[in-house]
Design a protein around this nucleic acid. Structure first.
Ligand code: MN
Ligand code: MN
Ligand code: ZN
Ligand code: ZN
Lengths: 135, 135
DNA sequence: ATATTAAACGCAACACAATTGCATTTAGTT
DNA sequence: AACTAAATGCAATTGTGTTGCGTTTAATAT
């Protein structure tokens, strides 16, 4: 399915900012910060971009992750992600050199045993190290 | 060892703000945000508090964690934590109800197998759910 | 006890991320 | 082509964290 139809299918209008933002998010196979995305446009209103990212997130098109530096990042949801059942439990990798963040969908994490009284809803595993490109 | 001596042992002057901040951090067995700590004082300069927290962190007295909402939090280091070998790899638990964060030093996490090319330096595991008090 | 001084403090200013309100424009529809 | 709800662009505001600088103070030396 093309970008325009995908946005429309999610109940959103296919506007220029949304099309470009989605194309950027779908490229590079990584999680993008607002600043990185903004730099990918020749010209964009940063408030509009904030709202587009929020719209995408609410539509279940992207998920938000806070990286090791506290920077908010967005990555496309690879499997179909209805907002309710949206699982963000996959591992994220943050490179100490280039500071890029990657979603590691194929990395398996073992279930965690919590102390009595604590109930788990979800888990965010954030690994930091050196990525393949920087190695 | 008392609070004053502990601060001095780390090479810092035992000032009123530092004493109070450390007492707050040592109480409650959880990770405190700047805002929460500030509220624990009857009167404190917020810039001074930022600097005290930075000093504590650099001295290896506390470690910094970003919680599920992107809020920066500080928790006392339970075992002796020289800054160089300081391990922050223990699990953190963030409550969806009260938004408090806890360090789970006794929770074991299995080692993670990364794809070829990626080298791991450390890992931050952040579980979200409902804490014992809220359950 | 008093003097000394490097460290810590308090305040103003600044930088940056993110949100809200509102008037204008536009995508999708009739 | 006309309509309208949604999206945009801009200004203003909030929140978090940092930096510079003059003043005060904790720890030390006399
Ligand atoms: Mn991801
Ligand atoms: Mn901790
Ligand atoms: Zn890298
Ligand atoms: Zn709770």
């Amino acid at each position: 399915m093309n970008t325009t139809d995908y946005i429309r299918e999610k109940g959103l209008k296919a506007t220029p900012v949304r099309l470009k933002a989605l194309e950027l998010l779908q490229s590079g196979a990584r999680a993008w910060s607002h600043t990185e995305l903004e730099a990918g446009f020749s010209k964009v209103d940063r408030i509009t971009l904030y709202r587009v990212l929020k719209d995408f997130e609410e539509a279940g098109m992207v998920h938000k992750i806070i990286d090791m530096d506290g920077v908010t990042r967005f990555a496309v949801c690879k499997h179909s992600c209805p907002h309710s059942t949206h699982s963000e439990d996959h591992v994220h990798f943050n490179c100490r050199k280039c500071h890029k963040m990657f979603c590691m969908d194929n990395v398996h994490i073992a279930p965690i045993q919590l102390p009595a009284g604590f109930t788990q809803i979800g888990v965010n595993t954030l690994i930091h190290g050196i990525c393949d490109a920087c190695n």
